[in-house]
Design a protein around this nucleic acid. Structure first.
Length: 575
RNA sequence: CGGGGUGUAGCGCAGCUUGGUAGCGCAACUGGUUUGGGACCAGUGGGCCGCGGGUUCAAAUCCUGCCACCCCGACCA
């Protein structure tokens, strides 16, 4: 491709709307263009890079026996009502109506659709196992789209679904996909970790998230350097502190004026935060978004609540719970904002962090203005309707597997795999007949890769102050020939000859034949991140050109044929 | 959804406090001189100053309603 013919416009300055490297660089290189918030289009270079990722995914999915299909983004509400997710998915589900008022949504994921396809066409165990996938546009009406492709409302996802006759089959399918994902992200040049994850709105039992390490990522993971424990912080289990063995003291309510926070109480009473109980108050909603109950969650004063663990403990979707208005709630349950404690609170669901069970003589709110109660003990003074681990694993806390202090890291979630089990086959009636003529539910798994997000993650991990540094496998073009002076016949002839030889060798090559000054061409070549640069300049007449890799600083003067053969070699080796 | 910020040429911004009918840099176009890391000179074109309402002789500027976009939080396969 000749740059004089290419639909391309690079920006010298950073667009005001972009904050992170991948967003800035994808905009500056003209690879993506924003249409509205959270919706982007792909220009020629960006689309070529995107298609490289898609092809890698196809090759690895096909290698595992996956079969590509393509289902519509528009989905009828009926299927979502069958699975129960029309309600459970919440406002992120992009809903619309047709002219007759019938409900539809734009698919944020396709479990329902794939289950529907398979339940219609699969009836025998002989047809299993089966793995179907697609690469397709997904829609999620994000509350806050941000960082360009990182969190957008329209994005491209590869979603695969496995269908097995039993859980052993699911385990095999899951392991195969896990393996395929490692190959895919390796080939994309990403530094990543596979970590245990919560299953969220997708549901199911087990799940792993593939997280590309990056400081700008929105995923926080906890991992252990001593053993192989790695999990998202929302998923990571906590080890409860050793139960105390002090003797139980009698409860005593004391005056603690204006001490609404744990910090205030601990300071006022001269005790450690670990000796206090923190209360968090929530209201829950039914399907019509009417309030239908209260929840009081109690954790040790120094801890942070893990919202994911809390909603999993209660068993409701995340959008069906919100922080409660303390004043309204106090009338119903007897709690007092800032002085809420587990003793005497009523008419609400009480969730107690498991750690509190073994802790003795703690200080909690007295449910009385300006008062706290000392020496509160679980079992004797209060009980929970639910007792579970609902706290966040902190950096330095003991590893739940081996006990060593855990580390935290940030990353970009580029893929996730789930063991769904029979969640969808049961709710939607996807059955097959086994050898004994018995009807059985298909056992499912699902496997997603955010393709557009992967593109952003690659740029995030592969750039410097001058621009993108594409890994060869993803680069929109492998080689750029920087022709210094297109008006110089000798230079032009050499550049054209190299261009032709590389094209003949099936190398994807750009020829910068624009009438621009050298500085402009070098800056653009670096910005665009093409892995190999061959500069044809003042020594062209004696058959000498310059060969340079984008990732290296040094450049070399070499003969024309050597430049060509070195370019062909490295492209074939790395692509 | 809560808090904060910003909307002026394709991009980056000034002008707004103190109303007088729009400017700078880059980009684009023409001509010339340049030619190994975002050149220089001369010239040219390009604006419903986010949208609506109000105040005023007069509004980019003041008041007001709305919209869009960005950031923090909430939320998020």
């Amino acid at each position: 491709m000749r740059l004089t013919k290419m639909f391309l416009k690079t920006l010298r300055e950073e667009p005001a709307e972009a904050e992170i490297a991948s967003h800035i660089l994808l905009l500056r290189t003209g690879m993506i263009r924003k249409l509205v918030s959270g919706v982007y289009g792909f220009m020629p270079l960006g689309y070529r890079a995107l298609r490289k990722i898609e092809e890698i995914i196809r090759e690895e999915m096909d290698a595992k026996g996956g079969q590509e299909i393509h289902m519509s983004a528009v989905q009828p509400a009926e299927l979502w009502k069958e699975s129960g997710r029309w309600f459970a998915y919440g406002p992120e589900l992009w809903r619309l109506k047709d002219r007759n008022g019938r409900d539809f949504c734009l698919g944020p994921t396709h479990e329902e659709i794939f289950t529907d396809v398979v339940r219609n066409d699969v009836s025998s165990y002989r047809q299993l196992p089966l793995n179907l996938y697609q690469i397709q546009t997904k829609y999620r009406d994000e509350a806050r789209p941000r960082f360009g492709l990182m969190r957008s409302r329209e994005f491209i996802m590869k979603d695969a679904y496995s269908f097995d006759r039993d859980y052993e089959g699911l385990d095999r399918s899951y392991d195969e996909m896990y393996d395929a994902y490692e190959k895919i992200f390796d080939r994309c040049g990403l530094t990543y970790r596979a970590v245990e994850a919560d299953t969220g709105a997708i549901g199911g039992s087990n799940s792993h998230e593939f997280t590309a390490l990056s400081e700008v990522g929105e995923s926080e993971i906890a991992y252990c350097e001593k053993c192989d424990m790695a999990a998202t912080t929302e998923r990571a289990e906590c080890v409860d502190a050793e139960p105390g063995n002090e003797s139980l003291l009698a409860m005593e309510t004391v005056l603690t004026p204006n001490t609404k926070t744990i910090e205030d109480v601990a300071n006022f009473l001269g005790i450690a935060k670990e000796q206090t109980i923190k209360a968090l108050l929530f209201v829950t909603f039914d399907q019509d978004e009417n309030e239908n109950g209260y929840v009081a969650a109690f954790i040790r004063g120094d801890r942070e609540l893990n919202m994911t663990k809390l909603i999993n403990a209660i068993g409701i979707p995340e959008h069906a719970i919100a922080f409660a208005d303390e004043e309204i709630m106090s009338l119903a349950t007897g709690c007092i904002g800032g002085f809420t404690g587990p003793v005497g609170i009523h008419d609400c669901q009480i969730v107690v962090d498991s750690e509190l069970v073994g802790q003795r003589n703690l200080c909690a709110g007295a449910n009385k203005k300006d008062h706290h109660t000392l020496h509160v003990n679980y079992g004797r003074d209060y009980e929970g309707d639910i007792v579970k681990d609902i706290k966040l694993l902190r950096e330095g806390d003991p590893c739940p597997v081996c006990g060593a202090p855990v580390k935290h890291a940030r990353g970009i979630e580029v893929g996730q795999v789930f063991k769904l089990g029979t969640k969808y086959s049961e709710s939607m009636g996807a059955l097959f007949k086994d050898e004994n003529m018995a009807d059985r539910h298909i056992v499912m798994g699902c496997y997603g890769i955010g393709v557009t997000r992967t593109l952003a993650a690659i740029v995030e991990q592969h750039h410097d102050e001058n621009g993108i540094i594409w890994p060869m496998a993803i680069a929109p073009y492998h080689v750029i020939i920087t022709l210094m002076n297109p008006d110089d016949e000798e230079q032009k002839k050499v550049a054209e000859e190299i261009y032709k030889q590389l094209l003949d060798a099936k190398v994807e090559v750009l020829l910068d034949d624009r009438k621009e000054r050298p500085g402009v061409k070098f800056k653009d070549a670096d910005l665009l991140g093409i892995p190999v640069r061959i500069t044809v300049g003042k020594r062209a007449f004696e058959g000498i050109v310059e060969y340079k890799l984008r990732r290296d600083v040094e450049k070399e003067e070499v003969g024309i044929s050597e430049a060509v053969s070195r370019a062909i070699d490295i492209v074939n080796k790395e692509k």
